[in-house]
Design a binder for these strands. Structure first.
Lengths: 209, 209
DNA sequence: GCATAACTTGAGGGCGTCCTCATGTTGTGC
DNA sequence: GCACAACATGAGGACGCCCTCAAGTTATGC
């Protein structure tokens, strides 16, 4: 349990540059973007990248931590909203906005790679808040009773997919998709659902594709 | 305009095997599956594959033609249904079923690669029928007025994405997603939509990802 | 059966990406 | 300013995939 030796100044600078390049590249190309491109954009040799971040996961964790925190913050704000429906809707809209703007975050959201405590705890916190937001909306009678938090995950994956396909051509098209979904989530619209909701276990094991 | 010389018998057999392997592999791995895997599964050298199908597109066209026809058939049946809503819903459900079962068809649907007349005309026919199905449901008053055929494309992409992520773990999860969407498409549920629908032009230029 | 065109084969060059490591460079503490 | 640990570098091996082509094999028509 010895103290971590501080980085040398040039190393700090290069780390900064790498993170900035990683954020940008992951945002545009997703989490499986070539690492060599990130190094090039950072103006640094590929070896330096591997020096600082031995695995892709390490770089992802360091680069996307802030985004995960931002997502948790969105959930917190939504949970505190005066109107339960407005809170519920703004949660979905806020997260989908992140998903639409950042391919990297969308990948993270889908595959939950996060190994670092920072990301894990942020995602955990968001998950808890999501459950609370759903519960509050249900008891207020503004959300249909038969939807579960796990459904929201599926729906957000769907919105992320349309956002992905239309990003370059109509960056707001996903809002239409989401609006239709929201209308389907209101109690007035409810017709019986044909399949059981996903369990947490199922959700954990899905989507490495 | 000379007649095409018939293939040699062994060539015919290899072609058959290649198509069968391609259907299977595309179904499981999507349209960018390694061609070498298809050749291997067909029990044929890679050169033979390139001999018969010079480009990936050629192979896709030949392998997925039947599926495109099947999709058009689904649309035809849906257009002929007695109940306009049932027809509309069965169109979405039928196409989504294809998308969920076959990653290759989902890719085709997203990227519209088809160069062969067979696929092109099938997709074309489906597009026309889709418009008719939407129109009929609207005039019957069972579908909200502000949705356009192009919206259905987006929604289906979304369902395909969730199907993709849950295929191995809960093969019917997408039905829940679709059911929620359908509820959002009913006139009773309608709240104003926040963005204009995609134009055909926009749809054509989207999603090479 | 034979000649020949049709077909098959798989080694191999090209490419992009991953990751390592020997070598060279630079910041830091004394 | 020196010495040394910390760091940076980029060539290069490994891998998987693409696609070609010279050489070998086989079906087909006579």
């Amino acid at each position: 349990m010895n103290t971590v030796r501080p980085l040398r100044q040039d190393a700090v600078r290069n780390r900064e540059r790498l993170l900035s390049a990683a954020r940008e590249t992951f945002r545009r190309r997703g989490l499986d973007a070539p690492l060599e491109e990130i190094a090039r954009q950072a103006g640094v040799a590929i070896g330096t990248l591997y020096n600082r971040f031995p695995t892709r996961g390490d770089l992802i964790d360091a680069a996307l931590g802030p985004l995960a925190r931002q997502a948790a913050q969105i959930a917190e704000q939504a949970a505190r909203a005066d109107d339960p429906w407005a809170g519920f809707a703004s949660f979905l809209e806020g997260v989908c906005e992140l998903l639409a703007e950042d391919r990297g975050y969308a990948d993270l959201h889908r595959t939950r790679i996060g190994g670092t405590p920072e990301i894990d705890s942020a995602l955990q916190r968001m998950s808890v808040l999501k459950t609370a937001i759903v519960a509050r909306a249900k008891t207020a009678g503004v959300l249909r009773e038969d939807v579960e938090p796990s459904d929201l995950v599926l729906l957000m994956w769907g919105v992320a997919a349309t956002a992905d396909s239309t990003r370059d051509i109509a960056p707001d098209a996903w809002r239409r998709h989401l609006a239709l979904l929201l209308d389907g989530l209101r109690p007035a619209a409810a017709h019986p659902l044909p399949a059981p909701p996903l369990t947490f276990r199922q959700l954990r094991n899905s989507a490495p594709g």
